[in-house]
Design a protein around this nucleic acid. Sequence first.
DNA 1: CTAATCTCTCTAGCGGCTAGAGGTTCAAGG
DNA 2: CCTTGAACCTCTAGCCGCTAGAGAGATTAG
Lengths: 164, 164
Amino acid sequence: MLSIGKLAEVTGVKVPTIRYYEQIGLMPCPGRSSGNQRLYGPAERQRLAFIRHARDLGFPLQAIRELLALTDRPETSCEAADRIARAQLAEVNSRISRLMALRAELERMLERHCAGRVADCRVIEVLGDHGLCLHHDRPVMGDIAVSDAPDNPPKRNPRYRACR
Amino acid sequence: MLSIGKLAEVTGVKVPTIRYYEQIGLMPCPGRSSGNQRLYGPAERQRLAFIRHARDLGFPLQAIRELLALTDRPETSCEAADRIARAQLAEVNSRISRLMALRAELERMLERHCAGRVADCRVIEVLGDHGLCLHHDRPVMGDIAVSDAPDNPPKRNPRYRACR
DNA sequence: CTAATCTCTCTAGCGGCTAGAGGTTCAAGG
DNA sequence: CCTTGAACCTCTAGCCGCTAGAGAGATTAG
């Protein structure tokens, strides 16, 4: 039996995240020690590894919920699993192509950059005038997940309330 | 002078988003009509277009805040603007490469998919065993921003509280 | 004048966690 | 056996970048 800390260690999922998964019903309520601490067996460990892997592949938690429901019914058709994976692939492809357009635009913006004043800056100029762009639609950003580096200090900016 | 609705229309930024930008101090507090409704002039319109364009290029709001501060001091060096744009380009490149690894893995997972039961499903199998993967690190997902299509109905799932 | 459409402020919610407070339990060393 | 310190517990609140909705007031077209 594993404590939550050990489980976190072997699966690479952080402790609060495991508790979060339990809270939203993705992980079952595990047994508890006499002192009310969570204890996990191999089944839970396998389940969490599945979740972690699917997350690493970018599946949203809702999709993972559905995939897990499928593993609980192994005799049903795997058509649904296939559909979910294909949707994820389509999503990834869409993100890639949009990011490539973005990259092209950013490179174009930077390639003739000035070494002078902001007033002449091509970056600023292009940002202010979409007409200088070739084309790009809405971006695909969000979740950085930039491997939580310790040199990436989370600076909390204190929620501006500008006017009034 | 434009009402907030007209401004939203000409810039493509939604009305609540404009108010949100004002709230966090990204847009200034505009003048008001006699009936307390916001009125925008060309300067605000230009500023919002700048923000919108930078968002489209994936810049986070904090970066946009800094870029806007630069445009307010046009005589300073554009070095900072350049640095911000390069950081953004690096970020985009990083996302692209990670997504490509993801895509490869998803395609591999799907290419020999079964037409049978979940028990034999390669998708499920691979998800359950990371050892079957080639390699991929953490993903780059998040903000879909999939051009708010009306065929994409926002289904609200009511915050599970599984156990207890 | 009325009805429809904006607009106002305010609060709460989304995904997917992360951080911290303030308390309890466990395991190793003396 | 006792102490210490790490790990654990629950709970709440915060992150980004919006989005949704309630319940009110303003404006505009017919």
